[in-house]
Design a protein around this nucleic acid. Structure first.
Lengths: 194, 194, 194, 194
DNA sequence: AATGAATGAGTCTTCATTCAT
DNA sequence: CATGAATGAAGACTCATTCAT
């Protein structure tokens, strides 16, 4: 990615984050990047293309971080914990852009179908982590695919929580809570109460 | 709601579901409803107004169903189970419109802010159910508000799952799974294994 | 003019005055009058018709007042003074509606052509007063028609002054000044200075 | 002002003159200019913006002409005569657009408020000429501001006369008459008749 | 006499994209 | 590589008028 392209890329993230996908205009991106509008089309085929590009880059960053953070961890359950923390942390750090992603997840436009393809591939990626833990008995046996979706679902939950509570709660606190729900559930085990 | 207004209302749901909020045009809604475009504006102030109206109606239907379904249930944990089932069921039945809701949850437009207000009020509604169960020791003590968000987050999870798996899985199956994760968690309790 | 029609008539003046001709909607007039929109069309053929009706009524009021105020005056110059005062007074009192008249004087729409016809007839009416004064030597001999236009022009001047100086100046003061300009001019007569 | 912008500018004057402000559509202006509608919005922010632009340009032309025509005149009264002639001449030459101005002078829309600001600044400009003449005793002492308004009022008078008498009278004749009224008044001085 | 639901032609405005330079 | 003027399709919304009741 040469310099101009990177500038556009970063301005696009900024503008998408601030205005959402439809709200972001090519004019605004060009203005923020300090280039002419035509230049955007020199580096990207279309507005959708820019979006797709950002998503893919983001996905790569996410996976790389998960991998690097869990490199020296052997316990399969701990690996899942790390995966969760990294993905929730990204939601936290890039909250504004994540909102755009969330809003674009649902339609039938090309960019939206492509976005879903990306997400799907990430969910399969999650499955590998879960399978390992299921195989070695760290987590209960159950429908692997559905469990992976559930884990990704927590990303949505975190994003919604972020969205609704502008007064920033401590991330670590939230992680703690959520992790506990996921691992142990919310129900009190009556038989253990004796 | 008189007849014409109801016709428009239903056409709007249909068109929004098919095309998303921005993709839905007033022309399309009018055409589907079989009325002139001006008629839309006779009954609703704007496109946003139609959307808002649908959301509020939907919210009412949801709460009413939760209430009626849990009318004869006394156990607080069972009440929560019913709440979950009803909300997930709605996501399942109205999946297309729910996608529109999900996509509109995130921005700063007026309709989006109002939508969030609706959701917030629903989450507070959930809290009441959770508080009861927490008070009588059915579920673990924890941050009530955050737990309510988590429960609402499962709606997102279900919606994402619906979105990604067009090949319809059995609803009951999904409910079963998800309920189990929420209540019991996914982790195997090592100490109990002895 | 029956009661409903008069109510509409008065509401129309109010609404036209507040919003101008285009800015005034039939909805607003109906709302102000407390009748249904259809009722407007029962009493008047169209929006233009209402406007025309108001203008004609206003014209009648103006002429009647001039006549009644100058009934007991014999001096032709004094009659002109009275005519001026009455017309300026009307501009002063009904300033908001006069602005609407002024704005509608200029186009090619039917109501505008009709309005000009009304004004033209008023200017001819002015001419009679001027002719009398010219015939008996009270005012200088000159192009009668053009002079009548000039006198009507002062109505515009007053209206503009009203428009631009929201801080109300004393009407009598203004009348005094303007009358002096018209009768005596603004130039200092050098030869009289000796 | 580059070429396209000038073309649009001139077409706008034409279309406004023919149809008035509301009657003029952006479509019509674009068609007359031979450009796409979007091009209008590339060069001007809105319809109101075009109007404002034309008004300001016109104002500049008017002041420049007054200045250049009175450059070599020293007599303050003659300067006023020139000012009048120039302003009346402009009304005569651009009669159709002046009608639009006149119709737009009266409301509360932004363009109308701005227009009045322009006119106000022109009236202050007139005051300077009057002050000079008043100071050196060429014209009678009186309320300077009101006199300036009166002089501007003659512009309205001329415009009305133009409007009502489509059969073009000689401009010079009209100027002659009006100037005489302004300077000397219309009354016969009885005491000089002996 | 009065109503008010329904109409639909008419307008301004937006914005992704193109292309000659 | 980069520009920025030009495009034109598309869409939300307004409002005078009609007409069945």
């Amino acid at each position: 990615m040469n310099n101009t392209k990177r500038t556009i890329f970063e301005s696009a993230i900024k503008v998408f984050s601030k205005n959402g996908y439809s709200g972001a205009t090519m004019d605004a991106i060009a203005a923020d990047a300090g280039v002419a509008k035509g230049t955007l089309y020199y580096h990207f085929k279309s507005k959708e293309e820019i979006f797709k590009y950002i998503v893919q880059e983001g996905m790569n960053v996410l996976k790389e971080k998960i991998e690097s953070d869990s490199k020296n961890v052997n316990n399969s359950l701990d690996k899942i914990k790390i995966l969760c923390k990294v993905q929730w942390g990204l939601v936290y750090e890039s909250r504004d852009f994540i909102k755009v992603i969330m809003s674009q997840l649902w339609g039938q436009e090309i960019r939206q179908l492509e976005l879903r393809k990306c997400i799907r591939s990430y969910i399969i990626y999650i499955q590998d982590y879960l399978k390992e833990a299921m195989d070695d008995g760290s987590i209960k046996k159950c429908n692997l695919s559905f469990l992976a979706y559930t884990l990704f679902g927590t990303v949505c939950s975190v994003a919604v929580y972020e969205l609704m509570n502008e007064d920033k709660k401590d991330l670590d606190d939230m992680i703690e809570n959520l992790m506990s729900y996921i691992l142990n559930g919310i129900k009190v085990e009556k038989e253990n109460k004796i």
